[in-house]
Design a protein around this nucleic acid. Structure first.
Lengths: 146, 146
DNA sequence: CTATGTGCAAATCTTTTGCAGGCTA
DNA sequence: TAGCCTGCAAAAGATTTGCACATAG
């Protein structure tokens, strides 16, 4: 489940991560800075599970407990730094891109990636029912190997 | 979480449920017939969680254990009688309508309902990436009370 | 210094599974 | 009768929480 494409934690990554935290006024602790750097240190959008991020942290030598990864992802989610994406009833995925955009879900590897932007377009969406408003439209394109 | 709109288990409901099982060549045991009747006995599409269906069974006086509800929903899913819908990372929802169609998810009550059919239309969908094919496109319109 | 964050282990919640007994074909 | 089904309790997996200690502002 772990994403091998995490950048190593160089100065640039750490600086970016720290700025990211600052923008959301989240207190920059050591482990939050590590996780932030892993998440957005190379400027790429990323899709992670708690477990995956935990393993990534471990293998880049950062000392973060699994519970803290959970708490931190939850905290990042609350301040809008990441978005929770629901594609699998047993696992939570978090996306560093917080815009509403479509996803590919690879059924064989359980991997979540972005669908090419601009390639999904609605020609019609229903009116929200009485007394309700649309908070988000989730589009998940499930892929299987052919 | 329980859906109060379950029909009582009259003869019509039981007959319908039994036919539904027969169509999928599922062995009609007592509890499967009860659950089938609860699910499609009134001809309406329904969206349930295991817990919700369990409570519905209990309150209509049917003796079914929670484990059996889980196993049965799983079994119905495997033979295509119901579809699993993923809208919440902590719970599985099952839909008695097995066509690929959009859903409303009511964030405040955690309820899942059908979005009006025909009201969602894509004008563009991406080509599936090399070596993959689209197995399904899930559209979930998240609603919040205004 | 004080409030907040962290780590560990234990708790919680949903779902699955092992096994003994029951029921359908 | 043979094999699938059911119920219970226990197991499993993901996530949260309680509490003592550490740390940022």
């Amino acid at each position: 489940m772990m994403d091998k494409s995490f950048a190593s934690l160089d100065d640039v990554a750490l600086k970016r991560g720290t700025a990211w935290l600052a923008r959301a006024q989240v207190r920059p602790t050591k482990q939050r800075m590590s996780l932030a750097a892993l998440l957005i240190g190379d400027g790429q959008d990323r899709h992670v599970t708690a477990e995956g991020l935990f393993l990534a942290a471990k293998s880049s030598g950062e000392a973060v407990s699994l519970a803290t990864v959970y708490n931190t992802l939850r905290a990042f989610c609350e301040v809008g730094l990441v978005n929770e994406i629901t594609v699998d009833a047993t696992r939570s995925y978090f996306d560093t891109c917080t815009e509403d955009h479509p996803h590919y879900f690879w059924e064989d590897t359980q991997e979540l990636t972005d669908a090419p932007s601009g390639e999904v377009e609605f020609s019609r969406l229903p009116e929200p029912p009485q007394g309700a408003e649309i908070s988000r439209v989730d589009v998940v394109i499930r892929l299987r190997k052919r």
